[in-house]
Design a protein around this nucleic acid. Structure first.
Length: 935
DNA sequence: AAGCAGCA
DNA sequence: TGCTGCTT
């Protein structure tokens, strides 16, 4: 293994890698059955094994910080202070990682009193002298200073991203410098927040780069400060000493008392049995197979070849089913490659026909489309892959020429339009829309693996590459590595060689099919299959329809409003400048804060945000409005600026040139409660509160001969709370048709309903609202301006009025503790792993979610059901009315004039009768030429 | 609270 | 990346 001409030493920066692994998984951490967070261990170990598998180091060691690091702390007491609050999961991880490394026979290094950086630096230098090529394995940019022709940085790829190797040239290019050593000067000038290196005052990345090009080093800069001008000159001169200290802090020490004993670092075969024991303990199942493979694959002997981030051919897609036990693996070693996957190109009509015939005999078939664009409306089909068995997939290229393309699609049509075969895909709505634009309408039954995972784990991430790694322990070819990063230089999928297209696409279909096999039984086990089949899958098609349809905007009005706002803003800006006696960028909260609190000294105890800036949010400014006349125009400026930039100017840019309509995208897998979310553009946050904001809704217009119908559930969440918690007095209020906030106030303040004051009603409303959003006592005081204890007693009074509500809430929390999750009316789950946390902030959050998720989620369930039924009835009755938008408790339609009454009634009835409840569900319907009038 | 988005 | 602000 260790030929002389191949001496490649990898030094792993342990803590940096552990942190990185931990944060990479922070959104869906790995938790064992006993509740231990093993994300950090997994992240680290996975990267390490990946490194061994792909790079085949000859020498390898892992370096930790040991004991107190006092060499630098003498210099600057705060050094690395920011790192002290290490998460619990990381502290817990260290002993396990040590055990794993020992079992793998990988040396653990560390020198008391020195940073791991310094140990790595020292060993790297020594190894270089002995003819080694050294790779420092770390995401930390500080190491760039050590780079030489034989010492490089190996930056592992994060989740699907490729790894990076930084040699001299890369470092030069990245920092715009001649010598990697200048990285020290660079850090000394700009500072580094993570390591608490202060840097020079007023110098950031840009300025530091400029200085380096001009002066070459910190010292030289400090000698020439007289050449600088203005504020910057002053700041740099004042912080010169700080700069020199920063340079000492940033310098990695290369004379740590440690030797490089190369024979100890030879990469040896692990003690598999021992590794397995540790893995078993922390419930790592698939990682063991990866480890075994890393050591059983053919060794590659020349460094240069291995280090090219080359793609492995798709034929090497490993299927670890055959690695279930060690013996089998041993006997198969090195020969498993092409035997287990078959990715076939289907490029003539005879073969396509045969394929479709086969597909039509299957119960479930997975497919994946490849296109030229992420925008479904303009995407051209390039190819489609199919898979119905693990390891097996077919790729059908779709010709560019119209005639041949239609021919191919006609051959495929029977499959897509079959009502027997279940069509499996990841993010099926995308494929549905693309095919729809090509004249093919994919029919139910559907199985979207992305949505399946969303139901199984609504808080997690649902991307295919990510799921492949988590559930199949497999890293797919990244599209980016084939066609380049997003932006100008990005290539098109159809320009790739056919074999590459085939391998990439088949792999996706194959993986999706494997995910399907995994998730389907899981859905069943969690009793989510009905929700999935009856609600989410049918909804997919409804949403696709809404997105394809889009909504018409009044471009002329928006353009005029933009000009009006522009001139209003100009006037306000001048007013602010003259009142404050200074001109600055009003859009910069940072500059605004400085002016208000430094120059005008408005509030000596001004609040700061956590990054040290002055907070200038609306509620803070509002309190100051009496203190200075400048505040009022600032607030007004803010409001208008927001309207202009976010809506008036942004919306016209999203108008599609083909049909002059805006096509938003509804995400069915983003909000953990079960709500939808809308993006590109977000049409769920169009203003309504203020008069001028409202006008924007007027720009959402019905097309000629049509009207907008808006239908909104009145107080659906409160009604559901009353229903689910069986809160009798609240139910009665709804039955009597009372104003619920007034009714709450009447009970809360013990006054007759007729005598409830405005303030009382508004306070009751805030409490009701707080319950819905699970805000708790703490948020309430913020919202109302009441003191903490006043808010507290208000909530006590609230619970005294609604005792069943209180006990229902307590019940939810209890249920979450026992089962680990809470449920909506339709069985949608939200897992709350923090419900037993010892940290009361974290636990409190989970507890509020235990109450909030079933309410918000149930409301989401109901409106989703209503959408499906309305859509079906429109089709059955052949109505031309079309659903355009959903805004959580509101549906917006576009209806031909002669259908308005029929459609309105149908909509209202379906929404109100969507689910049988004791509390009546009330829907308010409005009609108008635009969304504003319809409200 | 939790979505999305604009801006520096 | 952090801050701010719009909706429900």
């Amino acid at each position: 293994m260790s030929e002389n001409n191949d001496k490649r030493l990898f030094l792993v920066d342990a803590y940096a890698m552990i942190f990185r692994g931990y944060y990479a998984l922070i959104r869906s951490p790995r938790i064992t059955s006993s509740g231990m967070d093993t994300s950090a261990i997994f992240g680290f170990t996975n990267s390490l094994i990946e490194l061994i598998r792909r790079q085949k180091p000859t020498q390898l060691a892992v370096v930790f910080d040991v004991g107190k690091t006092n060499v630098r702390t003498e210099d600057f007491a705060d050094y690395k202070a920011n790192r002290s609050d290490t998460p619990e999961a990381i502290q817990l991880a260290i002993p396990y990682i040590h055990r794993i490394l020992q079992a793998m026979h990988i040396p653990i290094l560390g020198v008391e009193g020195y940073e791991a950086d310094d140990v790595i630096g020292t060993i790297a230098c020594k190894a270089e002298k002995q003819g080694y090529t050294v790779y420092m394995v770390t995401p930390d940019k500080d190491f760039a200073q050590l780079v030489t022709p034989n010492i490089k940085i190996y930056k592992p790829g994060l989740k699907g991203a490729e790894f990076e190797i930084l040699g001299v040239e890369e470092v030069q290019a990245k920092y715009g410098i001649k010598d990697p050593k200048q990285v020290i000067d660079f850090l000394a000038m700009m500072g580094d927040a993570v390591d608490n290196i202060p840097g020079l005052e007023g110098v950031g990345e840009k300025t530091a780069t400029k200085f380096l090009q001009q002066y070459g080093s910190l010292e030289n800069l400090l000698e020439h400060t007289h050449e600088l001008k203005g504020k910057l000159k002053e700041k740099v001169e004042n912080s010169a000493e700080r700069g020199r200290m920063s340079k000492r802090l940033a310098t990695i020490i290369c004379d740590v008392p440690v030797d490089f004993e190369h024979e100890k670092y030879d990469l040896e075969t692990p003690d598999f049995e021992q590794v397995r024991q540790v893995f078993d303990e922390i419930e790592f199942r698939r990682l063991y197979e990866t480890l075994y493979r890393a050591f059983s694959e053919d060794k590659v002997s020349t460094g240069a070849e291995v280090l090219e981030p080359a793609k492995e051919g798709a034929t090497q897609l490993d299927l670890f089913s055959s690695f279930d036990d060690l013996e089998q693996a041993t006997s198969q070693k090195a020969s498993l490659d092409s035997s287990q996957t078959l990715y076939q190109l289907i490029d003539n009509s005879t073969a396509v026909k045969a394929l479709v015939k086969t597909l039509l005999e299957k119960d479930s078939v997975c497919f994946d489309t490849e296109t030229t664009s992420l925008n479904e409306l303009e995407a051209q089909l390039v190819g489609i892959s199919f898979s119905y068995r693990k390891g097996l997939a077919y790729y059908v290229p779709i010709p560019t020429k119209l005639e041949q393309r239609s021919q191919t699609l006609e051959l495929l049509r029977p499959f897509f339009e079959s009502t027997k075969v279940e069509k499996v895909a990841h993010n099926l709505k995308y494929d549905y829309k693309v095919l729809y634009m090509h004249g093919v309408q994919v029919q139910e039954p559907y199985f979207d693996t992305m949505i399946a995972h969303y139901l199984l784990n609504p808080d997690g991430r649902h991307g295919m590459d990510y799921l492949a790694q988590m559930h199949l322990n497999y890293e797919p070819i990244s599209l980016e590595s084939l066609i380049g990063k997003k932006g100008k230089g990005q290539g098109l999928f159809n320009e790739l060689p056919l074999e590459t297209q085939r391998d990439y696409s088949c792999e996706d279909a194959d993986i999706t099919f494997q995910l399907y096999e995994l998730f389907r039984p899981e859905l069943e086990k969690s009793e989510l299959l009905t929700l999935f089949k009856e609600v989410e899958m049918p909804l997919l098609q409804v949403l696709a329809g809404m997105e394809l349809r889009g909504v018409q905007l009044d471009r002329g009005w928006l353009e005029k409003e933009s000009k009006d706002l522009e001139s209003d803003l100009k006037a306000l800006e001048e007013k602010v400048f003259s009142l404050s006696g200074e001109t600055f960028n009003l859009n910069s909260p940072k500059q605004l804060g400085d002016i208000l609190f430094e120059r005008l000294g408005l509030d000596p105890k001004a609040k700061k945000t956590k990054s040290g800036q002055y907070a200038t949010s609306e509620d803070i400014l509002q309190k100051l409005s009496a203190a200075h006349p400048v505040i009022e125009p600032i607030l007004e400026y803010r409001t208008y600026q927001k309207l202009k930039s976010t809506y008036v100017d942004a919306l016209p840019l999203q108008i599609d040139a083909h049909d002059s309509r805006v096509h938003t995208n509804f995400s069915q897998t983003t909000a953990a409660t079960g709500r939808l979310s809308s993006l590109n553009p977000n049409l769920q946050n169009i203003p309504i509160r203020t008069l001028r904001g409202q006008q924007i809704r007027g720009a959402f217009v019905a097309s000629r001969g049509h009207r907008i119908i808006s239908a909104d559930y009145s107080q659906i969440e409160l009604r559901l709370i009353a229903e689910i918690a069986k809160e009798q007095s609240m139910i009665e209020a709804f039955l009597k048709g009372e104003d619920i906030h007034a009714s709450t106030a009447s009970k809360l303040f013990n006054v007759p309903l007729q005598e409830v004051s405005k303030l009382q009603r508004s306070q009751a409303k805030t409490v009701n609202f707080g319950i819905i959003y699970g805000q708790g006592a703490f948020g309430l005081s913020q919202q109302t301006g009441l003191s903490r204890s006043e808010a507290k007693s208000m909530i006590d009074a609230y619970f005294a009025t609604y005792p069943n509500l209180k006990s229902w809430m307590a019940n939810q929390v209890e249920e979450a503790r026992q089962k680990g999750y809470v449920q909506t009316l339709l069985g949608r789950r939200r897992y709350l792993k923090d419900i037993n946390s010892r940290n009361f902030v974290v636990r409190g959050h989970a507890e509020r979610n235990a109450v909030n998720a079933p309410i918000q989620g149930s409301a989401a369930d109901l409106i989703k059901m209503a959408m499906i039924r309305i859509d079906r009835l429109f089709n059955e009755k052949n109505l031309k009315t079309e659903m355009l938008l959903q805004v959580h408790d509101e549906l917006v339609f576009e209806s031909p004039l002669d259908e308005i009454e029929t459609a309105s009634l149908l909509i209202k009835t379906q929404m109100e009768e969507v689910y049988e409840t004791k509390v009546p569900l009330l829907v308010e319907v409005g009609v108008g030429k635009n969304w504003l009038e319809a409200h």
